[in-house]
Amino acid sequence: MKNILVIGFSTRNIVFSGSRAGYNMYAIDAFCDYDLQQCAKAFSKLDIGESFDASKISLNEVTELIEGFGVDFDAIIPGSGFETIGLERLPYWILGNDPRIMSEVSDKHLFSIFLKKRRIAHPETVLLHDIGMLEFPVMVKPACSGGGIFNMKVESPEDLLQLGNKLKEAGMPPGKSKIIAQEFVEGIPASVSVLSTKDRAVAIAVNEQLIGTTWLTGMPFAYCGNITPFENPYASEMKLIAENLILELGLVGSNGIDFIITESGPVVIEVNARFQGSLDSVEMATDINLLDSHLKAFEGIIDVPAEIESEKENGSANKYAGRCILYSDRKMVMTEAVRDMLLEMNVCDVPVTGQVIGPYEPIISVLCSGNDREEVICGMKDSVMFIRESLNLLES
């Protein structure tokens, strides 16, 4: 195994992981960030227009981009959104889950039915036209979408009248027409990272999720990153639930389960049957290379340190680590001066010079590690404050 291609909207974390493990990493990516370009052996930009809907991208278009590299790839890894576009029809080893399984678990409505049959704690979920079955407030979101930027809390039936306009203002692609309504659950967002083969699953980390974090974004439910580990009284229970779910679903490789930790215990929210946004913090905290571990899992091997596999009471980490995503509050253009300033810090996902960043779009990710959660939070906040001040100074 030598040459690996990753296809997705944003592939930087997977490419970095594979490069650190010694593989020749290639990328088809919608952003082609500066640091991705520096790391990948070669890359090709995916033209997505104004949509982040992979179903609008033809397999022929992707095939042309693949052939354009002129490389005999040993494997292709589909990133988020590209798991069900038909890559399995290509003459390559596809290191992703079965598209039929993906179609079911990525649909939040179908997944809710799956969980309800098994009596696993999960928010009551209905299609939007059945919202009257739920008590307000409710969470309204696309059935098949990630990142949380289109999630909206609806307080009353009257608020539904403005829902269409609000989703349009948030930039939701017209194709994402299947909308669900969920019981609104109060609690702390978290996730469990799992490595699995067809007959074995090992939870390697419990992660705190940063959702709608006010010093990073103005969007109340946007995904803003992770801190690993997340020590809490339900960590052991969450890991067991995640391992059992992954096995029953038949998922292989690196997969994750999102939870909300309520006063009465963990509630399953959704499955991320692919590499997760927590990849950076998990790798920094556990010293596990997730790309290499993902490949080995498809060969039937779970290769993690014994102390992590045996640990069941906490986040299974050697240290604390975090990645946070800073969102823009206005339209801006990445300049060479700004880029060079950012590169002096411990950051990733650095936009290329000339890239236009719209309001509420990600600017950059900040990485930090430390001896405890407080040290990681303080380090990320200091970096974010410096970046904001520098951006204001450079644009004034």
Rank of each mutant, 00 (worst) to 15 (best):
4 I>G: 00
7 I>H: 00
8 G>W: 02
9 F>E: 05
12 R>V: 02
19 S>Q: 11
27 A>C: 09
28 I>E: 01
28 I>L: 07
30 A>R: 13
33 D>E: 12
34 Y>W: 11
35 D>P: 02
36 L>P: 02
39 C>D: 04
40 A>Q: 05
40 A>K: 08
44 S>D: 11
65 L>W: 03
67 E>I: 04
69 F>K: 07
69 F>H: 08
72 D>P: 04
75 A>I: 07
78 P>D: 07
78 P>T: 06
78 P>K: 11
82 F>Q: 00
83 E>M: 13
89 R>C: 09
92 Y>H: 13
93 W>N: 15
94 I>S: 06
100 R>C: 14
100 R>Y: 13
103 S>G: 15
105 V>H: 01
106 S>K: 03
115 L>R: 05
116 K>E: 15
118 R>L: 13
129 H>G: 08
131 I>D: 00
134 L>R: 03
142 P>K: 12
142 P>D: 12
143 A>Q: 07
143 A>G: 04
144 C>S: 10
151 N>S: 11
158 E>Q: 15
161 L>N: 12
167 L>F: 14
173 P>V: 07
177 S>H: 09
186 E>P: 11
188 I>H: 14
191 S>E: 12
192 V>P: 00
193 S>L: 05
196 S>Q: 08
197 T>V: 15
198 K>N: 10
205 A>K: 00
206 V>M: 11
208 E>A: 13
219 M>T: 01
227 I>M: 14
228 T>F: 09
231 E>D: 10
235 A>W: 01
243 E>G: 06
249 L>S: 03
250 G>F: 15
250 G>D: 12
251 L>W: 02
253 G>Q: 02
254 S>R: 01
258 D>K: 10
258 D>C: 10
260 I>G: 01
262 T>C: 14
266 P>C: 13
266 P>E: 06
268 V>N: 10
269 I>H: 06
269 I>S: 05
271 V>E: 04
272 N>W: 10
273 A>P: 05
278 S>G: 08
282 V>T: 13
287 D>H: 11
288 I>C: 09
300 G>R: 09
301 I>A: 03
301 I>H: 05
309 E>A: 15
314 N>H: 10
315 G>I: 00
315 G>M: 03
320 Y>N: 02
324 C>G: 15
325 I>W: 12
327 Y>M: 09
329 D>Q: 12
330 R>W: 05
330 R>S: 11
332 M>F: 07
333 V>L: 12
334 M>E: 02
337 A>C: 11
339 R>C: 08
341 M>P: 00
344 E>R: 15
347 V>P: 04
348 C>E: 09
353 T>D: 08
360 Y>R: 14
362 P>H: 07
369 S>V: 10
374 E>L: 14
376 V>F: 05
376 V>H: 01
377 I>E: 07
383 S>C: 14
385 M>Q: 14
387 I>P: 14
387 I>Y: 10
389 E>H: 12
392 N>P: 03
393 L>H: 15
394 L>K: 08
395 E>M: 04
